[in-house]
């Protein structure tokens, strides 16, 4: 009798590797090789994981078409099977796989699109939190503003893209045409989820450096310096407006000199 294939790992190994034969240790009915029976498990695994990727990377699938997407997904799944039973966390390295996937070479914007869609779902499932009240800043003495630090909302993500991923994802998910989009236009994206709905927005010049500094708990003064270090085109009023009203932050980290209470 062959080794029991669940404990030996032979069953698991054959699920994702079509080159392996049906594992030994399965009972055979007369004339049956178990090929079609074992194929049900192989198919269940592959189809469910491919469907999971398609539900996470909706726009990537729309860009390449279902057939291309599913063929690419199959290769990805074999090379990078999920490590967690939380299937909504799957695909963290799908973008890296796409950028090294020769048939996608003519679509250099595809990997950035995948990167942004992965962040979209991270944001969707993040911890709930209140959003910063834009009026909170008014309570802070002007001399203290530079030393102010912001607390990130748990659902906030930023992404620097060499391509127009934010426009592509927003247009595609709104059902709008992409015909006039230049996919090679670099974009910086801000992903927020102030209440429950995820929002992707393009950041203006300096915005990425500014928000990155604030998200890393640097002071407002340091964030302004970071923005200007990146580009002289930074519009500080506009950037501060985004920080206050986008829902990217949940509060201010400021201890009032007078009473020690949070504003």
């Amino acid at each position: 009798m062959a080794a029991e294939p669940v404990a030996s790992g032979a069953f698991a190994a054959a699920l994702l590797d079509p080159a392996l034969s049906v594992p030994d240790g399965l009972t055979k009915r007369a004339g049956d090789t178990n090929a079609r029976r074992f194929a049900v498990y192989r198919n269940n695994v592959m189809v469910s994981l491919t469907d999971a990727l398609a539900s996470i990377f909706l726009t990537v699938q729309n860009l390449v078409g279902e057939e291309f997407f599913r063929a690419m997904a199959r290769l990805y799944i074999r090379a990078h099977p999920p490590r967690s039973p939380l299937i909504f966390t799957y695909g963290g390295d799908f973008a890296a796989f796409i950028s090294a996937f020769p048939p996608a070479r003519d679509l250099p914007f595809l990997a950035d699109t995948a990167r942004l869609e992965r962040l979209w779902l991270d944001s969707f499932h993040s911890t709930d939190s209140r959003s910063l009240d834009p009026a909170a800043l008014a309570a802070i003495p002007p001399d203290d503003l530079g030393q102010l630090r912001f607390n990130a909302h748990p659902a906030t993500r930023i992404l620097r893209c060499g391509h127009a991923a934010a426009t592509i994802v927003n247009r595609d998910r709104a059902g709008e045409p992409l015909t006039d989009v230049n996919p090679m236009q670099a974009e910086d994206a801000l992903v927020t989820r102030p209440a429950f709905d995820v929002k992707v927005q393009l950041l203006p010049p300096g915005g990425y450096a500014f928000l990155k500094a604030l998200l890393e708990q640097q002071t407002l003064a340091e964030a302004c310096e970071a923005a200007f270090a990146e580009t002289a085109k930074s519009d500080l009023a506009a950037l501060l407006g985004i920080a206050l009203s986008s829902g990217a932050f949940s509060g201010l980290d400021y201890v009032c000199a007078n009473n020690g209470a949070e504003p």
Partner: peptide, 22 residues
């Protein structure tokens, strides 16, 4: 059923043998 082996998650409900060890 089982769905994880060696840290790989298969997203399916896979069968077990019915023996004393299992």
């Amino acid at each position: 059923a089982w769905s994880t082996h060696d840290n790989q998650f298969f997203n399916d409900l896979l069968p077990v043998p019915y023996d004393a060890e299992t």
